[in-house]
Design a protein around this nucleic acid. Structure first.
Lengths: 140, 140
DNA sequence: CACTTATTGTTAGCTATTCATAATAGAGCT
DNA sequence: AGCTCTATTATGAATAGCTAACAATAAGTG
């Protein structure tokens, strides 16, 4: 089903490198990881990769449309492999945990503003802010 | 109608300072200004105010709920005086212009996710991405 | 007007990110 | 398999945006 990472990288016109494969693998394991988390995970298989290279790889994969970058307020940028289905995110205001939220409509823009002051809207990005299950119980 | 800035600052339990008044005035003139823009505007009346002080003032006013901070992806933080009506924003993908978009519902959360993975949702933040009128015409 | 303490000015520092350039390694060709 | 070209990565440095520490100042209270 899911195309092999190697194939999707190649299909995007990019060279297949161990670094890129490792980054995609890291994002599979941590679906909303920030650059630092990706770096740490990738170092398990490639101890010498630099953080800067991780930045470059993430930028290349984002540019190619293989991953998506999200930038929640107050958090460093995060990346995810789930793309193409215009889903949204719930973010915990206490711990920053990110949870995918299916979009009812499915395709962008899932919402049409009543009046957008002449803007031509391409996508609507919805961020739900609240408390994750863990932070609800460990209250206060 | 609109309460005097001085009164709302006092009502929030904060001291009324010329810096805070000037920052609120700047945000009236530039409704989605970033810190730098606020600083430049404030310097017209207070040439010696530092950028750091503007940061502190903006943080204090945000904390007090007198202004709201928005952090669009790829842009420095912006601030606005329009608060309490849970409206949303349309942002130009080319020039970064921000436009208020009324919320159909009015109160947060204006959207309820069908399934939020156990999250207790407090607010829903909607960002519309598109082209502003100016960038539509100056195409390509 | 004096006093107390919130607020601001000053200086320093930090985090997330980008950039320039040299070194390296995919991938097509022979 | 080896060669070559060029995309990609490593290295080192720099930047923007923001926060922190602490001394100087001024708002508000009696």
């Amino acid at each position: 089903m899911t195309p092999e990472p190697e194939d999707s990288i190649r299909a995007a016109g990019l060279r297949v490198t161990t670094q890129r494969l490792a980054v995609l693998e890291a994002l599979t394991e941590f679906p909303h990881a920030d650059t630092d988390t990706v770096h740490q995970r990738v170092r398990l298989s490639q101890p010498d990769i630099t953080l800067q290279s991780v930045y470059v790889v993430l930028a290349a994969l984002t540019e190619a449309g293989l991953i998506r970058r999200i930038e929640p307020a107050g958090s460093p940028a995060r990346y995810e492999r789930r793309i193409g289905d215009n889903h949204h995110h719930a973010i915990c205001t206490r711990c920053g945990a990110v949870q995918d939220v299916d979009c009812a409509v499915g395709e962008a823009p899932c919402l049409e503003p009543s009046e957008a002051g002449g803007f031509v809207i391409q996508t609507a990005e919805v961020t739900y802010w609240g408390l994750c299950p863990a932070c609800q119980s460990s209250t206060r």
